[in-house]
Structure formats: C-alpha cells, structure tokens
Amino acid sequence: MGGPPRRLSPDEEDFVIRTATTRPSKLGRPFTRWSLRTLAAYLRKVHGRVIRIGREALRCLLRRRGITFQRTKTWKESPDPDRDAKLDRIHRSLPAQTQALHRYLCWRNTNARHPDVLAAQRKERARTRGEKGHSLGRTPPQ
C-alpha cells in the first residue's frame, strides 16, 4: 500500500479506542466528554506509554472504528404523576395555529433529510438572498 508507514501499533490503536470510550472523569480529567484536542493531549501524557498522534490522524482512527464525538441528545423525564394531564391542558389551551406549527416542526425535525424539507430550505435561502440583494452581483441596500 502507498503512504507513510503507520506510527501506531494495533495494540496502541486499541489503547486509544479504550481511552476514547472511557469517560474522562473516570481517568481523573476534570470534564465529562472528550474532544479531539483533549484526547490527543491526554494520550501524550499517559503514564507508562506516550502516544503521539495528531488530531486529524486521531479523528480518522476513531472514524474507522465507528466512534464520533457528537453530543448525544439528552432529556429529563418529570417525576410528576400528573405530567401528562398538565401537558394535555397546555396543548389544549394553545391556538390552533401554534399547534399546527408545533406538529410541523416535530415532523420537520424527524424528517430533516426529506426532499420536501430540503426544497423548502433551499427556497427560503433563495428568498433571503434575494431580499438582501445578493443575487446577480447586486450590492445589498444599506
């Protein structure tokens, strides 16, 4: 194969993956999630072994192994036993237009890659650009 030889052995790669999938707080770090920068810095200072890896090489290694550092969506459930009744009362009190907007936004968020959503987003961007005068090289009004 072409390219430079690998700098990390398979054992070192496994160590990087184990570290990346461990919460930083369990390793004595003062944060809850790794970033590429903090993980690379931690790997350079691990006691007993020094792993020198750049952020881009680290990102590629993690991607090959199916690991991404995207935030997970979290939510909290209410312990209130009357929660559903209260939410129903709130939803019934909302105007019909607000309810329709809420239903649309829920649909749009679950179907973010739907062709209709993408077309509407393109149309909105074109309208906004037109209002700002960015089309056809015109300068926007002051």
Rank of each mutant, 00 (worst) to 15 (best):
R89S: 06
R125C: 04
Q121W: 03
C106V: 14
A96S: 11
K123I: 03
I90M: 11
R103V: 03
D84C: 03
H114K: 06
L118A: 08
D84P: 00
K86H: 06
E124D: 07
Q97R: 14
L94Q: 09
L87H: 02
D84S: 05
I90K: 10
D82V: 03
R92A: 11
L118P: 00
Q121D: 14
D84V: 08
L94P: 00
D88S: 05
N109K: 09
K123D: 10
R122E: 14
P115K: 11
W107P: 00
W107A: 05
L105Y: 07
H102G: 05
R92P: 00
V117F: 01
L101A: 09
A120S: 12
R122N: 08
H114C: 06
D88N: 07
T128A: 15
Q121N: 11
Y104E: 13
L101F: 04
L105F: 06
P95R: 15
L101I: 13
L101M: 11
P95K: 11
R108L: 04
R89Q: 08
A112E: 10
S93Q: 10
L105R: 15
R103M: 09
H102T: 12
D116Q: 09
R113Y: 03
A96F: 04
R89A: 12
A119T: 08
R92E: 13
Q97H: 08
H91E: 10
D80R: 02
H114V: 04
A100H: 05
R89T: 02
H114D: 15
I90N: 01
L87A: 06
T110E: 15
L101P: 00
R103C: 06
N111S: 07
T98D: 10
H91T: 01
D116T: 07
P115D: 07
E124L: 14
L105S: 11
Y104H: 13
D84T: 06
P95D: 15
R92T: 02
T98M: 14
D84F: 04
Q121M: 14
A96Y: 04
L101S: 06
Q99A: 07
T98Q: 12
A120Q: 14
Q97S: 14
Y104K: 15
R122S: 10
R92Y: 02
A112Q: 09
D82P: 00
A96K: 14
